[in-house]
Amino acid sequence: MLRSAGLNSLKVSSKALLRTTACRGLTMSAVRLNAQPTGTAASGTGKPMVVDRELPDPMADRKKQWLGFAAFTVAVSSALAIIFNYEKTENPIISDTLYQLRKSPITNEWLGDNIEFDGIVPWVYGKLNPVAGKINITFYIKGSKNQSGMVRLVADRENRHDEFLIHEWSLTVNDKVFDLLGESSSKTLNRN
């Protein structure tokens, strides 16, 4: 019994010792966290922040900034123009027009076979807006005879359910204008 009482008191005293040690450890940790080192700006007794060199002047090199902005504007505008032109060249109306030009006897006579866009970068000038029903475009083509020509297509339509009515479709080679609309049996474009 004495032994068990001694063991029980030892257990109780060891638990109490652990509790007080743990409480002291937590208290010391809390004191360390709340304390701030002396001489810092947070305590208000430290040195103020000092900039040891002069700040850059935002108005300096104004010409360089404007040149950079101008170069950026030109680059973005050029990229947008190339993207929009690519959309025009890949339009089904242009594809259909090139197909009709490849079948045209006048085009084959003056330009030869293998009709394609002229130049390294094909460019379609003018307005090509099938949704609004307005087409007024010009582009250059070439054939196997190393001769280039300019194609002009003007068409419109009243609403989305109608076909495009062609007003002008011509090929210009060496300042000679050929009416391609006259040789075509259809006066409309079938594309919607």
Rank of each mutant, 00 (worst) to 15 (best):
A41C: 14
P56E: 15
E87G: 02
S14R: 15
V74R: 09
V121W: 00
Y99C: 03
T73D: 11
I166P: 01
Y86G: 04
H161E: 14
A79V: 07
G133S: 03
L55E: 08
F164A: 04
I120M: 10
L80R: 06
Q65A: 13
I166D: 05
P130E: 07
S170E: 09
F117I: 08
V173T: 05
M150C: 05
I94K: 03
A22T: 09
A79E: 08
T73M: 14
V76C: 11
V121C: 01
V151P: 01
A132T: 05
E54T: 10
G39Q: 10
V121P: 00
T20L: 09
M28P: 00
A75M: 14
Y86W: 07
E109V: 04
G133K: 01
S9K: 10
L165S: 12
P130M: 02
T21Y: 10
L80W: 03
S4P: 01
N91H: 15
M49H: 11
K187W: 11
R3V: 04
S186F: 07
L26V: 04
L189C: 05
P122D: 00
G182M: 07
F178A: 03
T89R: 11
T27Q: 14
G126Y: 04
P48S: 09
I83R: 12
N174E: 10
S14P: 01
S14H: 08
E54Y: 05
S9H: 12
P48K: 12
P92Q: 09
V151L: 06
W66Y: 12
H167G: 07
E158R: 09
I137S: 04
V76S: 05
I141D: 00
I93F: 00
K187A: 03
F117E: 01
E163A: 06
R191F: 07
I120L: 15
A5M: 13
S95Q: 10
N190G: 13
I166E: 07
V151I: 15
D162F: 12
S148I: 06
M59P: 00
S4R: 10
N192L: 05
E168A: 09
D57H: 06
K142N: 10
I106F: 02
I115Q: 02
N85A: 04
G39W: 04
P56F: 14
V151T: 02
E116L: 06
D52P: 03
L111N: 01
L111E: 00
S9N: 15
N146F: 15
W123V: 03
E116A: 10
L165A: 03
S95L: 04
L189N: 05
N192Q: 13
Y86E: 08
L7Q: 07
L33R: 13
I93M: 01
S13N: 13
A35V: 05
L67G: 09
M49A: 15
S184N: 08
R152Y: 11
H161R: 08
N8F: 11
L55K: 05
P122I: 01
S4Y: 08
E87D: 08
L55M: 09
G143W: 08
E168G: 03
A60S: 14
M28V: 10
Y140L: 06
S144H: 06
L98I: 04
S9E: 14
K47T: 15
V74M: 14
S78M: 13
W123M: 07
A22P: 00
F69I: 11
N174D: 13
K142D: 04
F117V: 09
T27Y: 06
L33P: 00
N159L: 10
A60V: 13
N91Y: 01
S77K: 07
Q36S: 14
L10Y: 09
N192T: 13
L128S: 02
H167R: 13
